[in-house]
Amino acid sequence: MPTVAPFDLAGHCVAAAFLDDIPHFALADGTIHRLDHGAKSVVAHDGLLCAAITWDGMALVTGGEDGKVALTRPDGGTETLAEVPRKWVTSVATGPQGAVAYASGRTAFVRFADGKVKSFDHPRSVEGVAFAPKGMRIAVARYNGATLHFPAAEGKPAELEWAGAHNGITFSPDGNFLVTTMQENALHGWKLADGKHMRMTGYPAKVKSWSWSAKGKWLATSGAPAAIVWPFSAKDGPMGKAPVELGTRGNTMVTSVACHPRDEIVAIGYADGMILAGRIADLKEVVLRRGGKSAVTSMAWDAAGIRLAFGSEEGECGVVDISA
């Protein structure tokens, strides 16, 4: 039986994450809490909007209402990497060699490990940024499509067009596909080799959480009464294929998903605070948390895939241990 160790905080949890195997909870007020032999915390921002874990899993990069991009380590040390005065930093992403991308208004920035910053202006707002899994390349989600930049080189960006407002953005772990969440209740994708489009529609709500499975064979998403899990193992990704619906419930919505680091299992968090684990192969489900006062907003597995950190809209956070 899984056991839940609750960790009640006050405020919206933007991100739950394991840094060096220590569970961290980044709250919207700017405080980053951690459970490291007792509850500890550090204030990283006045208002925290977005977060991404570094590729080595040893730090959390966050963007805030205070215009700062901060990096926080599991020892509680926090430093400001960059600042955009009087603007909100609304999206952050982490990349290779300690690079960080962030967005504010109509500009995307890439900060290299040596502190050098390169900026990319766009005609419309940068809604999301993501690094490609290989090479120094970023993708920007914008109105009517996505833009690809090579920050380490000069040259023209590559534009991918699709009408509508694109909000979130992610590369598939093999680098073959680029996927966006849209203002409409849909995902859009491009096969990067030939620019072929993928439309993933049918959601009753906006997709706000997604997670690639181990080896990138599946993309699990929120936005429906079940986790909608798209197959990406075929040459053309999910084109012409139906998604797997995992953990279907009749009366509530999936608000957060997190794929297990090794097995094809998805942790599914719901609007009523419940968390299930569902296996893609046979659709078997296990209850990890019965429910709570508010929607699950973020979840993350530890490296071993034994503990799941979760956070919610009203600050009910905690860690589920599935080994017991």
Binding site: G11, D29, G47, T90, E127, G164, Q183, E184
Partner: peptide
């Protein structure tokens, strides 16, 4: 942002959606 539903009058302010969402978290 024009909504992708073929209706030209269905427009929203994308920046407001983002900003209101951020504000309402606190």
């Amino acid at each position: 942002y024009e909504m992708n539903n073929g209706c030209i009058c269905c427009t929203v302010r994308g920046d407001l959606i983002r900003t209101v969402e951020g504000l309402m978290r606190r």
